[in-house]
Simulated assay, not measured.
Amino acid sequence: MKIHVWNAFASNNSGSYTIVGRFPSEELAAQVAAELSEVLAAHEQWFRSPTAPRSGEGSRRETPSPLRAFAQVHSLTQGESDWADQGELRAWSTGHQVFLHDPCTLSLPDSYEEFLRVRGGKVETRIRHAHADIVSLFELRGTLPKKTKAETVRALVEELHADDGPLVTLAPFNLQPAWREGSKPGEPVLTVGAVFHDRDLATGFTAVEGLARRHGLDVTVRVSEEQDSRDSLAWLRPSHPPLKRKMFDVWLLEAGYSPKEVARRLGELRHGRYVDVPGLLKALPDTVLKRLTLSRAEQAVRFLREGGANAELRPAE
């Protein structure tokens, strides 16, 4: 007789959560986002205080946590809001939309969606427990004079790709942004697709909206989870209008005397993304960062060389 015994542990990995609500006016959306941001900040401060109760202690304070008090005031589902560690959950508004995004959590309580509805909005998108990147599609709309429309679009595309532009500083190297100028009635003036690092989502959205507003354009954002590591923006390529400025790739020729240090630096340049050192070494020479402005490419090459790497920049194809 044979006896087989397995010893295994369940995996319950955290993922990102994204909730998008839409409101009748931009003013109301901004107000709702501000209310959520205020209670999230207050709860995080409360949660980190040494006197806050912890799960399993068997009793709660007589005074409820900021999240629990918020839920009580608005008659929302309370759940375990006293013990919720939501330090990375952020709320912000873009036009008529309110976004809630946590880059790494097991779950979010239903009370957030309930609050959006209580305040007069509707939930239009929810992405629960995503492990792939969040793809953001920005639709820029507005009325521009025909004589200056093309010029305005070109200027905006260049600004998005400035040295400090969101499509340069916040976009990962492995999925480049794409865009297309609208040419038919009813189409957006400009559609921009991008992937931002999870923790840069709010910063990226705010930056794109700010540049669009400067040119008199409103922004609506559609979000989805990247599927199977395919190019979710292929339908927007080749991008139009093309960039005037030249972009550069960073090539890693040799890892040098300290491959781990080079991998660490490369991970930092890739916004903290994991770098497989053995796989990296096998692939050399190879492109490790793509389509950077000249200034940022020079900075990246210098940073890698300081770690012992043999790196250089080349014009992007």
Rank of each mutant, 00 (worst) to 15 (best):
A91Y: 07
A194I: 04
P241M: 04
I19P: 00
P238A: 04
G58P: 05
G256C: 03
V301D: 10
D249H: 03
V135D: 02
S136V: 07
L217R: 01
R48L: 12
D102R: 01
T51D: 15
V39Q: 02
L67G: 00
E298D: 14
K149F: 06
D218M: 13
A84T: 01
R68D: 01
Q176K: 11
R245P: 10
H4T: 11
F173D: 14
W251Q: 13
P238L: 06
E261H: 09
L40G: 00
A34F: 08
T125W: 00
S136E: 13
G210S: 15
L100P: 00
L243I: 03
V208S: 06
N310D: 14
P50A: 13
W251M: 14
E225R: 15
D82W: 03
S14N: 12
E187N: 07
T143C: 11
R154D: 13
R296A: 11
N13S: 14
G56S: 04
Q86A: 12
D102H: 02
R119L: 00
L201R: 06
R237H: 03
A212F: 11
K244Y: 02
D218V: 14
R296N: 14
Q45D: 08
A10N: 12
V39W: 01
T51L: 13
S93M: 02
P315K: 08
S81V: 00
T293M: 02
T148C: 02
S239P: 06
A300M: 09
V98C: 03
P64Q: 07
P177S: 02
S232G: 15
P259C: 05
D228L: 07
T293F: 01
P315R: 10
F99H: 09
S16L: 06
P50H: 11
S239T: 05
R61C: 01
K149H: 07
W83A: 05
A132Y: 12
K246T: 15
G15K: 06
E27D: 14
K122D: 15
R180M: 08
F115Q: 01
P185N: 07
Q72F: 00
M1R: 08
A255I: 08
S258N: 15
T206N: 12
L252N: 07
G182N: 04
D198Y: 11
F248D: 02
S75K: 10
L280P: 07
R199F: 13
T152W: 04
D85Y: 12
I19D: 00
Q45K: 08
A207N: 01
L28Y: 05
V208T: 05
V192H: 09
S59V: 12
E139A: 05
V5W: 02
P145D: 11
